[in-house]
Write a protein that binds this DNA or RNA. Structure first.
Length: 429
RNA sequence: GCCGGGGUGGGGUAGGUGGUUAUCCUACGGGACUGUGGAUCCCGCGACUCGGGUUCGAAUCUCGGCCCCGGCCCCA
């Protein structure tokens, strides 16, 4: 019987897991240094958690099922909704801001391709109840900080504000579902589709021109001035623009200026309200976006008190992909430093005692369990990059000693059995 | 859901116009070597993605499924 992995899933072996763990830990360390605490939510939720936010249509992309008592459940396709659900249930009265981060796998029933799997990992955060240019700037800086710390070089952070476009649409009397449709077309970046849509809903000439110009505006902070001139007649849109300006000012102070202002970001989701940002790495095929986020009002949608939230998530697998493409060296330190090799079967029990003492002293160690030949042991230690081999042979044992071989230099030293732990402690720590 | 390219031992491959025991490298296990590591030699292990069809005979031709790679759609 051939057992196969389900489509779009992966197995991760030792080396790859070391790299992933290293990246995960680096990001987590940075998040925590900004005051975020880790949370975890269930891998499956009630199906309705996801359908209320995004409509029945997304059921096509969700792994959903009924449990034995007929409950409609779903493997989570993303983590924002579960986190919002948890917040409403447990944290509404917690002191603000609530800063939390998560790392976990999500599931989507989609056609796998480059950077897209049916089980994939997201590492992200939410900052709830502290809407301000400063918090948005801090969140964006933190995202950049993570990537810098990992040594990722060619990423681009694009920042925009949905309030600008949305308010222009409101001024043009384009509201509700129609407005969302227009935003979706903008998100796609398909100018033709957008034009067709705008004329089909009888948008006035001025507004259409204004929109088409705005969504093409990309560049450094100076484009904000141009945008301001363009939309000077719309007060609300200008307020959104000022919001963006303040955000950029704060970003500067947080020491991050390597961004692109992009007024064409729309993020297709109805619940985003103001600031939005996306991070791209080119050369990753069709899935170049490694992160996306912004400020939104999801809590209220789920029936909580009105509170703004800013957050983003890294597509963890895509970050790994980007690092690999760039051949970033990811530190992969071996946990095992010492291999204890009893050279004949009489000494294996002594070997177990020694290895266990080492482990209890926090020194990673292995011992030969099956009576391998010394040649094989040395070869094994070599492939696993174990630094030292303790040779436990009858000759030394009679004198209460072992021979320690340094695998790098090949040098050997005689050490009293009673002093093995302290010997390695000084060597390794 | 749609389009294109693929699938041969654990990993990487040769074979492809049908024809005996399916090639090579590597990894792994054992040995030459009774206590010293990426060497050498020997031995061993181990594969045609699955199912149907054509045929005396299919890894090879054909149809379908599954899976992989890339793209479209979508991307909460």
């Amino acid at each position: 019987m051939e057992l196969q992995r389900p489509r779009g899933t992966r197995d991760f072996l030792f080396e790859e897991m070391k790299e992933r763990k290293n990246v995960e830990n680096t990001m987590k360390r940075i998040f925590e240094s900004y005051g975020y605490g880790e949370i975890k939510t269930p891998i499956f939720e009630e199906l309705s958690l996801f359908t209320t936010k995004s409509g029945e249509g997304i059921k096509d992309q969700i792994y959903h099922f009924q449990d034995k008592s007929g409950r409609d459940l779903a493997l989570r396709p993303e983590l924002t909704a579960p986190v919002a659900r948890m917040y409403i249930k447990e944290l509404q009265k917690a002191p603000k801001p609530v800063k939390m981060y998560y790392f976990g796998s999500c599931f989507r029933y989609e056609r796998p391709q480059a950077g897209r799997f049916r089980q994939f990992w997201q590492l992200g955060c939410e900052l709830i109840g502290a809407k301000s240019p400063g918090s948005e700037a801090e969140v964006i800086s933190m995202a950049a900080h993570c990537l810098d710390e990992l040594g990722l070089e060619n990423y681009e952070i694009h920042i925009g504000n949905l309030g600008i476009l949305r308010n222009i649409l409101i001024d043009a009397k384009i509201l509700g579902d129609t407005q969302d449709q227009v935003m979706a077309a903008i998100d796609k970046g398909d100018a033709e589709e957008l034009k067709t849509l705008l004329s089909s809903i009888n948008t006035d000439q001025d507004s259409e021109e204004l929109l088409l110009k705005l969504i093409d505006m990309k560049g450094d902070a100076s484009i904000l001035k141009d945008a301001e001139t363009l939309i000077n007649c719309s007060e609300n849109a200008c307020n959104a623009l000022f919001e963006l300006e303040k955000l950029l000012e704060s970003l500067e102070a947080f020491g991050f200026s390597n961004y692109t202002v992009n007024l064409g970001i729309a993020r297709g989701l109805d619940y985003y309200t103001g600031t939005v940002f996306e991070i791209y790495v080119h050369g990753l095929g069709a899935q170049k976006q490694i992160s996306g986020g912004g400020t939104y009002n999801l809590i209220e949608l789920f029936g909580g008190e009105k509170v703004e939230s800013t957050g983003f998530a890294f597509g963890f697998d895509r970050v790994m992909e980007a690092l690999k493409k760039q051949e970033t060296v990811i530190d992969k330190e071996e946990a095992v430093k010492v291999f204890v090799a009893p050279l004949n079967s009489d000494l294996s029990l002594t070997g177990y005692e020694i290895v266990q003492k080492l482990r209890k002293s926090n020194i990673g160690a292995e011992v030969d369990l099956v009576g391998k030949k010394l040649k094989k042991i040395l070869s094994y230690a070599d492939t696993k990059q174990i630094s030292y081999v303790v040779l436990l042979g009858s000759r030394e044992f009679e004198e209460g000693k072992v021979t320690v071989k340094d695998m790098k230099s090949g040098e050997q030293e005689s050490v009293n059995i009673s002093e093995v732990e302290s010997y390695f402690k000084t060597k390794l720590m």
